[in-house]
Simulated assay, not measured.
Amino acid sequence: MFGDALPRARRFAELLAGPGREQGVIGPREIPRLWDRHLVNSAYVGRVVPPGSSVLDVGSGAGLPGIPLALSRPDLRVVLLEPMARRVAWLEEVVAALDLDVTVRRGRAEERETRRACGESDVVTARAVAPIGRLAAWAMPLVRPGGRLAALKGASAHDEVRRDADDLHAAGAADIEVVECGAGDATTHIVVVHRTERRSATGSGPGAGRRGRGRKDRSS
Rank of each mutant, 00 (worst) to 15 (best):
P68G: 05
V161K: 00
D164G: 07
A173V: 07
G154Q: 05
E160I: 05
V102M: 04
D166Y: 13
S53K: 04
S60P: 06
R163T: 14
G63K: 01
A137G: 12
G154I: 04
G207C: 05
V58S: 13
A126Q: 04
E177C: 14
A5P: 00
L142V: 09
R148H: 06
R112Q: 11
T187I: 00
L71M: 01
D167E: 14
P131E: 15
S200W: 11
D185W: 04
A201Q: 15
A186H: 15
I176E: 02
S204F: 11
T125H: 09
E180V: 11
P51V: 02
D4G: 02
P141G: 15
G61K: 07
G182K: 01
R163V: 14
P7H: 00
V193E: 00
A139G: 07
A136E: 02
E93F: 08
E197G: 12
L56K: 01
F2E: 00
R127F: 05
E113L: 12
L39W: 03
S200F: 08
G203P: 07
H38R: 03
I190T: 07
R21N: 04
K153Y: 09
L16P: 06
V88C: 10
R211K: 12
G212W: 08
L71P: 00
R163Q: 15
G184C: 09
A126D: 04
F12Y: 14
S220L: 14
R163N: 11
L56F: 04
D185T: 12
V143K: 07
P32Y: 14
A17G: 10
S204M: 12
M1K: 03
P145S: 04
F2Y: 10
E14Y: 00
G133A: 06
R127V: 03
G66M: 10
F2V: 03
D167W: 14
E160K: 08
S54F: 06
V179Q: 00
R10H: 05
S204N: 10
L34I: 13
M140V: 15
I132S: 03
E177M: 14
F2N: 06
G52Q: 09
L71D: 00
D122Y: 05
D175V: 09
D159R: 15
V40G: 01
R10L: 02
V58K: 10
R115T: 06
A139F: 08
A96W: 05
A173H: 08
R144G: 05
D4I: 01
